[in-house]
Simulated scan of single mutants.
Amino acid sequence: MTGIVEGRVVIVTGAGRGIGREHALAFAREGARVVVNDIGVGLDGSGSSGGPAEQVVAEIEAAGGSAVANTDDIADWAGAQRLVDTAVEKFGRLDVLVNNAGFLRDRMLVNMAEQEWDAVIRVHLKGHFATLRHAAAYWRAEAKAGRTPSARVINTSSGAGLLGSVGQGNYSAAKAGIAGLTVVAAAELARYGVTVNAIAPAARTRMTEQTFADDMAAPEDGFDAMAPENVSPLVVWLGSEESAKVTGRVFEVEGGQVSLAQAWRHGPSEDKGARWEPPELGPVVARLLERAPEPEPVYGA
């Protein structure tokens, strides 16, 4: 291994299983000290257990690495603060925050309950904001004290957040919000030595095992394109000091493919120079649509 993050202190949320677990192990292999956060809930957000986080810590330590478990709820304001404090108190500082934790409560919009909406928005979107807010406050204080950090935040969006996904209105909205939060945070935190990027991964985890059910068979060529560990190398690189010039970006990762997602952009326009009358706008909209590329289809549409 190259030790590309040797000595850096990294928080990974939702790191007890799936992609988060692979992130934690990958950072440790490259020399980072890792705070393994996982509340240990079920796929639907029920229950809690310290076991998953502790198991990952044991794996890291057995391989000669350094890690500590944390079971705080990242969407709880005080819990997110305790998570950041754990890194600083245990390892002396914080260099990288990887926001990964989440769960699903899929439902078509006409059947979705208020609680199903609120729960997913809380864990994904508020969970990203709460940890980011407390980490940012720490890094701002460091910068003001003359210790400008070389800090990194890697958020987790989704193809559902970039393009939409039928049956996942709550999840799609939360992940779209994370993409928007990423670009705002990148602009605001640059002055403190912090870069903020996001990934939109496609991999087989507890959350996606039904989606990728057809890909469960062992690959003939030995490369499992849906394996969660395929996502982690880019996350580790984004957490390194080498990525200092990359910020405010969203990367899609699937198998061996890495791509840069294109955000909303200003498109074709027509300016009358005065207020439009409603009957005038039908032909205007038609001309704008003719000049614009077709949007990517919503997943499942």
Rank of each mutant, 00 (worst) to 15 (best):
A198I: 07
G177P: 05
E61I: 08
V231C: 10
E61P: 03
E209P: 00
L132C: 12
D271V: 14
V235H: 04
T211R: 09
P228L: 10
G3Y: 00
I74G: 07
A173K: 01
D38C: 10
S66K: 10
K245L: 12
G65W: 07
A203E: 12
A286L: 08
R33C: 11
T211H: 02
A78G: 08
V153Q: 01
G20T: 02
V258K: 04
E290I: 13
I199C: 09
S158E: 09
I74K: 10
R133W: 13
G177F: 07
P279Y: 06
A187V: 02
W139V: 08
F91G: 01
L163A: 10
Q210S: 13
V96S: 08
V153F: 13
G102V: 10
G14S: 10
L125A: 03
P297Q: 11
T205M: 05
E290D: 15
R8N: 04
N70W: 06
I121P: 03
K126V: 09
A58I: 04
F223D: 14
V56D: 07
V253T: 03
Y299P: 00
V183E: 13
A187F: 00
H128R: 00
A173F: 01
L189W: 14
Q262M: 10
V98K: 04
E220D: 15
G161F: 07
P201Y: 08
A24S: 06
E242T: 01
D72H: 14
H266G: 04
I39H: 12
N197E: 09
R191K: 15
T205V: 09
K175E: 01
W117T: 10
F91V: 06
A213W: 11
L125I: 04
V57E: 00
G273L: 06
T211S: 08
G7S: 13
L260T: 11
R191Q: 15
F91W: 08
K90D: 11
V298D: 00
G167S: 09
A67S: 10
L238I: 12
A78V: 12
S66W: 01
M112E: 12
N100D: 13
E280Q: 15
K90V: 14
G40S: 06
A135V: 03
A67K: 11
A179I: 06
P268H: 07
R152I: 12
E270C: 00
W276T: 02
G267F: 06
Q115A: 15
Q81E: 15
F27H: 05
D221N: 15
R265D: 08
P278I: 02
E114F: 07
G169L: 11
T86V: 13
V184W: 06
E188T: 09
P268I: 10
T211D: 04
A26I: 03
I154V: 15
L181Q: 12
S158F: 12
I154D: 04
E220F: 09
H23L: 06
S46R: 11
T2R: 01
G31Q: 02
T86M: 03
L43W: 01
V123M: 13
G3D: 05
D95M: 05
N111E: 10
Y138N: 00
G14Q: 08
N99R: 09
G127P: 03
A58Y: 03
A24G: 06
P219N: 06
F91P: 06
P268Y: 10
A218T: 15
L83Y: 12
L238T: 11
D85P: 05
T195E: 02
M216P: 00
G51W: 02
A173G: 00
E277G: 09
